[in-house]
């Protein structure tokens, strides 16, 4: 299988193998979408039941960090896209460069989110429980908001870490890819963009809705 033209014996050609692999990734992303679906559904449902408390919770979040992180992730997906275009045009060096940028932007998101923002949140006493710092009538609903917040950002962060590992793997194996054969680069790119899309749904749920009302 190490030979460039080779394909596994159940496929009729290397191209057949490549398109099959990409179908698999798309299907996997469908699974992932249904995985995150319940959080979004439960979140919106819970907010409808108690909007004022949710909004009170939402106003406690760090908007500046949220906006910065959103920009980081979008830029990272963009960088990945440029990297993918580079390998399609045969520039392996360009691909590595842009993927390194994408990786760094993703890592910056993780650092900012968990190193800075979470620490601020915890110091402000926003983790639900007896020490929760929001008082008054919104206390219980705001706790619910932050239960969602910590749960979903942790899960999203975990996906991002997996994505960073995959990116590192692609960069490490960059020598194998050519303008014809690079379906792993494409596959990881789909996953990387997917994580981005999940964030683009979380971002308004966390930072914007509470401030808009």
């Amino acid at each position: 299988m190490s030979d460039a033209a080779a394909h596994e014996f159940q496929f009729s050609s290397a191209a057949h193998q490549r398109e099959t692999a990409i179908s698999g990734i798309w299907l996997f992303l469908a699974t992932e979408a249904l995985f995150f679906g319940p959080i979004f559904l439960a979140w919106i449902y819970a907010r409808l039941a108690d909007p004022s408390a949710f909004d009170a919770g939402g106003r406690q979040t760090e908007l500046a960090i949220g906006v910065t992180n959103t920009a980081l992730l979008i830029a990272s997906s963009f960088a990945y896209g440029v990297g993918l275009a580079c390998i399609e045009f045969g520039s392996r060096r360009g691909m590595v460069l842009w993927l390194l940028i994408a990786w760094a932007l993703g890592a910056a998101f993780i650092g900012l989110k968990f190193g800075v923002e979470w620490r601020m949140d915890l110091e402000k006493g926003l983790f639900p429980g007896a020490t929760f710092s929001v008082h008054g009538p919104s206390r219980s609903g705001a706790q619910l908001f932050f239960a969602f917040y910590f749960f979903s950002t942790a899960l999203h962060g975990l996906h991002l870490l997996v994505g960073l590992a995959l990116l590192a793997w692609i960069i490490a194996k960059a020598r194998q890819f050519t303008s014809e054969r690079h379906s792993p680069v494409r596959a990881v790119g789909l996953y990387w963009s997917f994580i981005d899309i999940i964030w683009l749904i979380l971002f308004p749920l966390i930072y914007l809705i509470g401030r808009a009302s």
Partner: peptide, 28 residues
């Protein structure tokens, strides 16, 4: 995947004693 997420949410609630299905804080 829907089941997987649901069980994660319950596990979260069990570990931290607080969560999205807990009627005490308005969960359902």
């Amino acid at each position: 995947p829907v089941l997987a997420m649901t069980l994660l949410l319950v596990a979260f609630e069990r570990i931290f004693g607080i969560g999205v299905f807990d009627p005490a804080i308005g969960g359902d």
